[in-house]
Amino acid sequence: MKIEVLYFAWVRERIGEPRETVETEAATVLELVKELKAREERYDLAFSDLKSLRVALDQELSEFDAPLAGVCEVAFFPPMTGG
């Protein structure tokens, strides 16, 4: 399946691009992270500490063990600082 993967703030800076289309068979967010980390060092660096990251599935805050079935858009970012 094809998934749009978005990066924000320092995650975007570490990876070097704001979004990309990823071809994956990952069943969960964690599996997708594992695949990305294995690709290149910049991904490994961006995902080195999952506790400092948040994930949204189709624009809704979610968890790293959530399933990816039916998901079109995954976004990774640090804790939000709005307001």
Partner: peptide
């Protein structure tokens, strides 16, 4: 809004730039 609205702040000062940590 502070921790559930997806905004991120980066401070750019004379001495460099840094993301504001939650």
């Amino acid at each position: 809004l502070k921790s559930r609205a997806p905004f991120w702040k980066k401070e750019v000062t004379r001495d460099g730039a840094d993301w504001v940590a939650a």
